[in-house]
């Protein structure tokens, strides 16, 4: 039987991200108690909503063993199209958000078409659409900054029952994604697909449909993420969202999603995004050199990925078949024939 120490180590490895999160909070809290005040914590959640919402969508894709590099460009293009439609049709901001979401769905369908129908690998498809979507967006704006109607910022800075809007959207998406992944047939099939697509097909799962949907979800989430952030800023420039795909993937992986597929949760992505933001804010609070902050962030991501690897190695070694039961050390072991 496993010893107590071993089980404790097991638990630690399994919940490494939570432990790292707790340690980070504690560390910064000790450095600067203001950091743990409700306002600053709420601010962290608000700031993490942008990457967080996109990371929730990315988790779906990573669960299937795929990757979506186009999210940064989708953030930009969807927010832009929503703004243009809003301005042209004089739409209210919530309707604009729906437009952004629909744009995300369409862009996701483009990715899904190449991946599912033409069977090009996700890395290449989304690398290509990363360029395509951004190029299209810049063409639409003629490389100039795009200003949203003033109602946009009012919306972005509003709050519902005292909760800032970005947090409301973030929470709503997290909840929806959690329910879909954990409590619907589609959600469970996403996990099955990531574990073994061929077995999923044989088990009667419509795998093309499952795979297509995750890319649509990822793009839709990225689109809303972009819109929510832009709503707080009120304008959009050509570099918006550039390079964010890596932040989004890092947040999802930090939250326990594996790049090999089959493991990860929506709430994990929320935590991953929040953890990254906590570190960022903490570094600001404690006055660490601005230029050194990314290094510490990188170190934390590294730790989380390392913990994930250790977790998998431990799982695998436990699965190794035992041929003989290992008898207690006392007496000649199993030598009766």
């Amino acid at each position: 039987m496993t010893s107590l120490a071993e089980r404790a180590l097991d638990a630690a490895v399994r919940h490494a991200t939570y432990l790292i999160f707790a340690a980070v909070l504690l560390w910064f809290g000790l450095q600067s108690p203001v950091f743990l005040m409700p306002e600053s914590l709420a601010n962290i959640v608000k700031q993490s909503s942008f990457i967080g919402i996109a990371a929730i969508g990315m988790t779906f894709v990573l669960l299937t063993g795929g990757i979506d590099l186009s999210v940064g460009s989708v953030m930009f293009l969807a927010a832009l199209i929503a703004g243009m439609v809003m301005r042209a049709l004089d739409l209210p901001v919530p309707a604009g958000m729906v437009v952004a979401l629909l744009t995300g769905v369409v862009l996701g369908l483009i990715n899904a078409f190449f991946i599912v129908v033409l069977r090009v690998i996700p890395f290449i498809v989304t690398l290509a659409t990363l360029f395509l979507f951004r190029g299209f967006g810049i063409w639409l704006t003629s490389s100039t900054q795009f200003d949203f109607p003033p109602a946009m910022r009012a919306f972005g800075l509003s709050s519902i029952l005292g909760v800032p809007l970005p947090i409301v959207v973030f929470a709503a998406f997290a909840l929806m994604a959690h329910v879909v992944l954990a409590h619907t047939t589609f959600g469970r099939q996403v996990y099955a697909f990531g574990n073994d697509p061929e077995a999923a097909r044989k088990s009667g799962v419509k795998i093309a449909w499952v795979q297509a949907r995750v890319y649509v979800i990822s793009s839709a989430c990225a689109a809303v993420a972009g819109f929510v952030l832009i709503a707080q800023i009120g304008r959009l420039d050509a570099g918006f969202g550039e390079g964010r795909e890596f932040d989004v993937i890092a947040a999802a992986v930090l939250g326990g999603a594996s790049l090999m597929g089959g493991s990860g949760t929506a709430l994990g992505a929320v935590m991953g995004a929040t953890l990254i933001q906590t570190v960022k804010m903490g570094l600001v609070f404690t006055g660490v050199n601005l230029y050194l902050q990314p290094i510490l962030q990188g170190a934390i991501i590294f730790l989380a990925v390392l913990a994930d690897g250790l977790r998998n190695t431990r799982m695998r070694s436990r699965l190794r078949r035992t041929i003989r039961t290992v008898e207690p050390a006392s007496g000649p072991a199993g030598r009766r024939i």
Partner: peptide, 13 residues
């Protein structure tokens, strides 16, 4: 640059 980006994307695809 946007057209360059778009063509690059199309070429990769």
């Amino acid at each position: 640059s946007f057209q360059v980006d778009m063509v690059k994307g199309a070429v990769i695809l």
